[in-house]
Design a protein around this nucleic acid. Structure first.
Length: 370
DNA sequence: GAGACGTGGGC
DNA sequence: TGCCCAAGTCT
């Protein structure tokens, strides 16, 4: 399809895509409801997150927080635990913030129009368009990663899909193709096509319902679209953390601030190695800086690698015993001493979770009761 | 507008 | 193993 497509091309495309979607769409939990709240929750979870990852979180979340009011009165620790492992935790804070605001001001209901939705915390162009079109028949086109990839191939569009300045460009194209009679279905159809057929690597063009419209396929060019701007290399940091254990084999955990990365998570104290500092030295220094405790003879029990969005780490975990006397030096920080058997009841970052097997093994080897 | 912000699956 | 990436939003 060349841009701009003719009225005929648009009409045929809409009809064909919609029919394909109605016949082949996946049976996903959030497609079994018309509840705007449920659709909103699903869209927030689906940001930058795969459908297969989201499904179990969504099911459990809707069980525990079935409506706006239950979310608004949620306990912070339980709420965070329900999101543990999903990532991008600011979106959870915004979800609750919006639930509280709407409970106060709008009888715990989402507004139905794009503009009102767009002004709420955590709701950007994509979610405002998705919720308004799917739950309220609003006529705004969604533009997500799937849609940009499909459009880039349909029109052999050179606009890089991973830079913000391309967004308005793709939005114009998506709006042109959106079927105004069934905007919610049309939006989901285009995303479903991207997710199931027009995939990033090895798209299934043989099974594509709209291959007749695809300029990239016609020019044997699908592998060259979408165009992406090369991404920058991300830094690598060695990190050391400490599992500090008392005589009863309880573990000292500290809480991260509610702002910044991994807000509100529990963690094992520690931090980055400075310069050419060894893991053990960094462990001792970081623990002292964060907690005021002087630890001795930290024993390394595992090393794991983890990739965050904008840096990677290699984390070494050290175990060390601490005397009752030294424990008096603990700074007034938010902390807990917990039995190692209770680690699963609290929210920890994935990097810490990766160390849990080695930790369990250590406790078992030392005959510690859970 | 570029960078911050997580994670796990696929290849 | 390491890199790519997935239903984005905020600053």
């Amino acid at each position: 399809m060349h841009f701009p497509p003719s009225e005929n091309e648009i009409s045929t495309f809409r009809t064909t895509l919609l029919q394909w979607y109605q016949n082949t769409k996946r049976d996903l939990p959030w497609r079994r409801t018309r509840d705007p709240y449920a659709i909103w929750v699903s869209e927030v979870m689906l940001q930058q997150t795969r459908v297969d990852t989201v499904i179990p979180y969504y099911e459990a979340f809707m069980e525990k927080y079935p409506d706006m009011a239950s979310l608004a009165r949620s306990e912070p620790e339980a709420l965070l635990k329900s999101w543990e492992g999903l990532g991008y935790y600011k979106r959870l804070q915004n979800l609750k913030k919006t639930a509280l605001f709407l409970t106060e001001t709008n009888d715990a209901r989402l507004p139905s129009d794009f503009q009102s939705l767009r002004e709420l915390p955590g709701i950007g162009d994509y979610i405002a368009a998705a919720v308004s079109s799917i739950a309220f028949h609003g006529k705004e086109a969604v533009v997500d990663g799937n849609v940009k990839r499909v459009l880039a191939r349909l029109f052999t569009d050179p606009a890089p899909v991973n830079i913000s300045s391309s967004h308005r460009h793709f939005l114009r194209h998506a709006s042109l193709l959106l079927d105004p009679e069934q905007p919610g279905e049309a939006n989901q159809a285009l995303m479903e096509l991207g997710a199931m057929v027009c995939t990033p690597a090895r798209p299934s063009c043989d099974g594509c319902p709209v291959s007749f419209s695809c300029e990239a396929l016609h020019t044997d060019n699908t592998r060259n679209y979408p165009v992406r701007q090369p991404k920058k290399i991300i830094p690598f940091y060695p990190v050391a953390c400490a599992v500090i254990v008392n005589e009863r084999f309880d573990i000292l955990i500290t809480k991260r601030p509610e702002t910044g990365m991994l807000p509100g998570f529990w963690e094992f104290p520690g931090g980055r190695c400075e310069g050419k500092e060894s893991g053990m030295d960094a462990c001792i220094r970081e623990v002292f800086e964060e907690t005021g405790l002087k630890i001795e003879k930290p024993e390394k029990i595992c090393t794991i690698r983890h990739a965050y969005t904008h840096f990677r780490i290699e984390m070494s975990l050290f175990i060390c015993r601490i005397t009752e006397k030294e424990r008096q030096n603990l700074k007034p920080i938010e902390h807990r001493w917990i039995p190692h058997g209770e680690l699963d009841t609290l929210a920890f970052p994935a990097a810490n979770r990766k160390c849990m097997p080695a930790l369990s093994a250590w406790f078992q080897a030392h005959n510690a009761s859970p």
